[in-house]
Structure formats: C-alpha cells, structure tokens
Design a protein around this nucleic acid. Structure first.
Ligand code: ZN
Ligand code: ZN
Ligand code: ZN
Ligand code: ZN
Lengths: 165, 165
DNA sequence: GGCCATTGTGTTATATTATAACGTAACTGA
DNA sequence: TCAGTTACGTTATAATATAACACAATGGCC
C-alpha cells in the first residue's frame, strides 16, 4: 500500500492556508447546496471562524469572535452551539472530545472516521483519514454495531520536538 | 494471532461481579503498596463507587454517592476531582472523554492504551486492550511522539440489538 | 400574493462540569 | 518532636452546555 500523506498532515506543514480556507468554504457551500441545506450567514460565520486556523477552538472562544465581528449584537451561547451542531451533523467540523473544542474538517463530506493527532505544545491538530481495522474487528466479534468513533492521540509534533531538542 | 476475549468484553457478559469487584480492589491495593502510594480512605471510597459497576459515572454522581455514604460530611467537588486525578494517574480508572465521565479500569496497571466500546442504549462500557498499529505507524511517519491516546467507539452492544430487534 | 408548516434565530435563565486559592490535618522520616 | 510533604476540607468561581420560550425567515401550496 502506497503511503498517502496528501491531506493527512496538512496542519503540521506549511501550506497556503488562505487557499486552503477558501477551498474548504467552497466545498462546504457545494455540499450544502447538494444536500438542500441552508448554510445561513450565522452558520457560515461560525465555520469561517473555525476555518481561520487548524487549531481547535472552544465554543466560548468562537462566541467571543462572533461578538467581536458583530459589536452591536451581544450573541449568546445557544446560537454558537446550534451552529456547531449543524456543522457537526454535516461533517463540516469535528468536536475534539478531549479538549471540549471544535475544529474544521479538512476533508468535509468524506464521512470518514476522523482521527486526530493533537500536539500539546503548539496546540495544532492534524486530522488523519481512515479507520482502525483491528478495533473494528474486535467490535464485530462482540456483535457491537459501531455508530461513531473518537480517536484522539496527544503528543508532541515533529516541529515542536525540533524546537525543544 | 489467537483471538483473546478473556478480559475484553467483561462488561458485556454476565459474570460474578462481586468477585470481579473484590479482585480489582485487591489489585489496586497491591499496586499502590508496590508503588509506595497511599490508597487513602477517600481514594478507596471513590474507587469503590466506580467499581460498583462497569458503567461510567460523572464526577457529580460520584460526589452524590459519597455524600450519601457520609451524611454528616458535606463533601465538595475538589475532593472528588483530586481522588479521580490520583486514580487516573495510577491507571486504576479511566476518563471517558466523550461523556465527561469516569470508569474503573478492568486491568489496572497494564499501562495499556485503553479503548472503549460504549453502548448508547444500556450505557455499559467495555474496555478493550491493545493499540491501533495503523494509526501509530502514521503518527510515526509524521515524526509525532505519542503521549496518550483516547479511543472511544459508540454504538449498540449485541445484547441491546437483540432486545430491540 | 396570502397562508401554513417548518426551520432558524434571539433571549433569558439555569444546569453541568471543573478549578483556583487558601487553610488545616495527617503522614513521613529524621 | 520537628520539619517537610502530602492529602484533605472549604469557599468561591470559572468554563462548558442546555432548557424553554418567543419571534423571524423561509419555502411550498393554493
Ligand atoms: Zn490550511
Ligand atoms: Zn474530517
Ligand atoms: Zn465486573
Ligand atoms: Zn484500563
């Protein structure tokens, strides 16, 4: 099997993130159009805030950003959580359970099982594709019907190891 | 490789849980003695509350149990969280990140990477042993130094599928 | 266009989960 | 018994998330 690192480690490599951002937003638009869903302006705002980086953000950080962008409005938590629920349900963002945080998906619509490498130094998160075969076989042996999986690996990314070493 | 299901699916099978409980408490005692650690009465109380079932419990549920057992005391959250931190640091319990809950470890001291199957119907949690080779290879390719992993699979266990079907 | 059903938004209040900060008690080793 | 350390207790508060309800926008239908 050839090694695929194309979209795997984007967060940990230098890349044209402006392009990356526009690309992902455009994919989100297309995906919603195809599914007859409304990517409303609030939802788009929240998505754009998450697309601004490959780092996870807490709901209240997103809330603060929203309120900075709309100084007149005084937006409250439920608005953010509802937008996040929508974006998660469509696979446009993911929740990082071990951080109570949210992050934009780097391959929206793939319906893959998301897996994350989380650097506890630089706080960047890389999203990997694929499933864990061994674990699913084991689940199968137990007659367990898988629904959703959370795979989050914490450690130190290559970049931060260099800086420290 | 032979299939090992010995301790893998204990939470999803009938077993003598009284015995299971006593066994795990005894292992915890031995482990703390070996490591010159103090399994104080508070810590033991919290562990025993978690050992009472193979279901995850929230910190405040544990707190309520503690206060039920000690009606005179009025125990406060930090006491519970400190006991939980101790028990986690020694691998006697695990945190279920996707539930903000805690569960007793079924093979304390193994230093394994814990992996969980979580039934969203009966709420039981089975702890599997082992690591995900594919994912770790990928982490390695990226020069990522793994520290800690969270693997939580949600779905419906065999038992609950039967009841529903 | 007017109507209805549905979906999305805004608002207030509150629930749930977790920690900071600080003082006291218990244990440990000399 | 004393000092150093670890664990416990207490108060207050931070951080995360949701309930409940009113109103607005949208979309299909006539
Ligand atoms: Zn990018
Ligand atoms: Zn994704
Ligand atoms: Zn048992
Ligand atoms: Zn374990």
């Amino acid at each position: 099997m050839a090694r695929k690192t194309k979209s795997v480690d984007i967060a940990f490599r230098k890349h044209d993130h402006g392009r990356c951002q526009r690309q992902l937003l455009s994919e989100a638009r297309q995906l919603c159009e195809a599914r007859k869903l409304r990517l409303t302006s609030r939802r788009r705002q929240v998505l754009e805030i998450l697309l601004a980086s490959h780092q996870p953000m807490g709901a209240y950080d997103i809330l603060a950003e929203l309120n900075r962008a709309n100084p007149a409005a005084r937006i409250a938590p439920p608005i953010v959580y509802r937008a996040l629920d929508f974006l998660m349900s469509e696979g446009l963002i993911h929740r990082i359970e071990s951080r109570n945080a949210f992050i934009s998906c780097v391959h929206p619509g793939h319906q893959c099982t998301a897996q994350f490498l989380i650097c506890r130094d630089c706080e960047q998160v890389a999203e990997l594709e694929g499933r864990d075969p061994a674990l699913l076989v084991e689940a199968d042996n137990l007659g367990f019907a898988v629904d959703h999986s959370v795979v989050e690996i914490t450690g130190i990314c290559a970049q931060c190891q260099k800086h420290a070493g």
